[in-house]
Simulated scan of single mutants.
Amino acid sequence: MTHHLFLTEEHEMLRDQLRRFVAEKVQPHADQWEVDGAVPRDVLREMGALGFLGIRYPEEYGGAAMDTRATAVLAEELGRSTYAGFAITVLVHTDMASVHLFNAGNEAQKAAHMPGIVSGDTITAVGVTEPDAGSDVKGIRTTARRDGDDFILNGAKMFITNGVHANLYCVAAKTDAQGPASQSVTMFLVEKDTPGFTVSRALDKHGWRSSDTAELSFDNCRIPAENILGQEGRGFYAIMKNFQNERIVLGAMAMGEAQAALDLTLDYVKTRKAFGAPLWDKQAIRQRLSMLAARVAAARQFVYATAARDANGEEVTREVSMIKALCGELVNEVMYDCLQFHGGFGYMREATIERMTRDARVQAIGGGATEVMLEEVAKRL
């Protein structure tokens, strides 16, 4: 299905390349990644070599200098793979973590790290969420205390995607313990082997099983002041700004997942016989799948229209919040019915739809819970 309204030939070429890569290099092997709890680093380096990790970054770092629409294509096609754990491993690196360095980093920081980020030699994670602060970023309690030319970090981060295997972390901490979060959160670059920084545990998740997720701990972790990303005290705004991109990405990924689920369920109900005829012959099933297909098509167009507006530099906070709420809920509705129409087989671990249903659940939680998103929309209505 083409989106010629919003996309150029270059975007469609990117889609074809991604689809081929997923079919050849991901789908035959990703069941093992689900068991292993991580995507192999050589697969990520291969994606880097093909240019998939630097779609939005400038050519000087090895990137393709494309726009928000290209990001939506990437996210949708990775979602279509049916392995959302693989998809989120890549998308956190390309569009949720490394963007902090690219948007706020100085020339020296970018020269040091961006080429490795684009090649897949350096995998990134972003440390904002804490045991007591998720969608409520202002609740973070990790501190960074100035000590001469260094800062000393103390605290914990929770549910950090790529947290186990990343090389470079963009970490939010309060540099002024008394100040309001909007003026006291600072982003820092922390490298994997920094003393005082540990991955305290790998987390065992309901879905996204091929994505490594960790709890991180900072115990008097000393990092040089030159590792500040952007300005001291301006981290809250950087996090809020990056949420815009992140939520378009999650919306596009969710619609890729939903479309793949509809496609495979369509195949299933056309061949599975019940009461002497294929399930497709049951009007209730045909019509339900038709309505879901219509809603996914509509939501997908909303994602691409918003990505195009974002690429034009328009203010789309309201639309992005709508997308995150709408797509996060819709993908779960699609999965529920698709699993239902697979009958008992859909409940078996060997069924693709069973994994996809588990994977989709977090789409209504991560990157801004539906309820939080709806409040963002309400403020702007």
Results as ranks from 00 to 15, higher is better:
82 T>A: 15
82 T>L: 15
83 Y>D: 06
83 Y>E: 05
84 A>N: 10
84 A>S: 14
84 A>R: 13
84 A>Q: 14
86 F>E: 07
87 A>K: 12
87 A>W: 06
88 I>Q: 12
89 T>A: 08
89 T>D: 07
90 V>K: 05
90 V>D: 02
91 L>N: 07
91 L>C: 03
93 H>T: 08
94 T>D: 02
94 T>K: 07
94 T>Q: 05
95 D>S: 14
95 D>P: 00
99 V>R: 02
100 H>C: 02
101 L>V: 12
101 L>T: 05
101 L>Q: 11
103 N>Q: 12
103 N>D: 14
103 N>T: 08
104 A>N: 09
105 G>S: 11
105 G>D: 06
105 G>A: 09
105 G>V: 10
105 G>Q: 12
106 N>C: 09
107 E>C: 00
107 E>V: 10
108 A>Y: 06
108 A>K: 15
108 A>T: 15
109 Q>Y: 06
109 Q>T: 04
110 K>L: 14
114 M>R: 03
115 P>I: 00
115 P>E: 06
115 P>A: 04
115 P>C: 04
117 I>D: 00
117 I>M: 03
117 I>S: 00
118 V>N: 02
118 V>P: 00
118 V>R: 05
119 S>I: 08
119 S>W: 04
119 S>T: 13
120 G>L: 10
122 T>N: 13
122 T>Q: 11
125 A>N: 12
